[in-house]
Amino acid sequence: MYLGVSPSKFDQMRQDGRVGPAKLIDSRKVWDVRALDLAFDALPDEHSEGTAEDWKVAV
């Protein structure tokens, strides 16, 4: 929820290295929000791969 993605997308992002490993509290996995912020900041912006008008091509 913090990153705005589904649990399955979060798992994919973990597998491909876009999100780092969890910390463990006993056997519970938790993520540092500061590390999540850094991972989020590293994602490309929408405008870096085209223009905001790209969606109109499919319409």
Rank of each mutant, 00 (worst) to 15 (best):
G17N: 11
L36I: 14
P21G: 14
R14S: 10
L3I: 03
F40E: 02
V33G: 00
L3K: 00
S27C: 02
K29P: 06
A42Y: 06
D32W: 13
V19I: 15
D37R: 11
G20S: 13
P7R: 09
L38I: 09
Q15E: 11
R18N: 02
I25L: 15
W31I: 10
D32A: 13
Q15Y: 01
K9I: 08
P7M: 02
D11T: 12
A22S: 15
G17A: 07
D26Y: 11
L38A: 15
S6E: 11
R18P: 01
M13P: 08
R18T: 02
W31N: 07
V33T: 15
A35N: 12
G4M: 04
A42L: 04
V5Y: 08
L3G: 01
L36E: 11
L3E: 01
D37L: 04
D32I: 04
L36V: 12
G4A: 02
G4W: 03
L36Q: 12
A42P: 05
R18A: 00
R28H: 14
V19P: 03
S8T: 13
L3Q: 00
S8M: 08
K29H: 14
D37S: 09
R14N: 09
D41W: 01
R18Q: 07
D11W: 08
K23M: 13
K23R: 15
R34E: 14
P21A: 15
P44R: 05
L36F: 10
G17E: 07
L38Q: 15
A42N: 13
R28N: 13
K9E: 03
P7C: 03
G20D: 06
D32F: 10
D26F: 11
F10L: 05
P44S: 08
D37C: 06
S27L: 10
R18Y: 00
L3P: 01
G4F: 03
K23G: 04
A22H: 13
M13V: 05
Q12G: 06
L38D: 14
